[in-house]
Amino acid sequence: MFTTTVTSEQFIQAIIDTVYMVGMSLFVGALIGIPIGILLVVTRPGGVLENKLLYTLLNPVINIIRSLPFIILLVAIIPFTRMIVHTSIGTNAAIVPLILYIAPYIGRLVENSLLEVNPGIMEAAESMGATPFQVIRYFLLPEAVGSLILSLTTATIGLIGATAMAGTVGGGGVGDLAIVYGYQRFDTVVVVATVVILVIFVQGIQSLGNSLARKIRRY
């Protein structure tokens, strides 16, 4: 009953794949998503760089991408993926749609974090004659760091969920293992083991995020 066809090497490879996919897409996704979040906040009406055109353009684009189920996005952008990484299968091929999936999500989360910053701080910044760049650099971001960390934590956990579907393009990873070996071959041991691994992942990341945020917030 406790036998399984999956070797421990396969498990380790799956964990490495997941960490790689999540890490890469989180990194690039944050690189794109954080500026998007900042743009959403500063270009909105009343923002320090109010820009109606950019704001009204950015908003629906983000909404459209975010409303696509990941599995659809994954398949729909295969030509684009091929263009970027010159292949449409494998872990790298999974990273492209993961980035496209997570960047707008991070953008929204960052937007929320930044909007939480006490408007009084922004007023103080303005009263000091700070330039829009200085407002972002010295007031908005430092005050939101704790909240931004929690946002990125949420995004990371969302990414772990999404990587399970990466198997569709042969991306590998823990989720893929669970579906291909566990679900499709009725291998209960694999299902349980992968679920345990994912639970540990999620718990670990959330705890890390929480403690980092607490440390930075100091209150």
Binding site: G120, E123, A124, M128, G129, E143, G146, R218, Y219
Partner: peptide, 22 residues
Amino acid sequence: ELRAAKKNIGMIFQHFNLLESK
């Protein structure tokens, strides 16, 4: 010029508006 002029006008607030992170 306005930003420069603002440096000549200090302001304090009811709720202090200090950066909690600093």
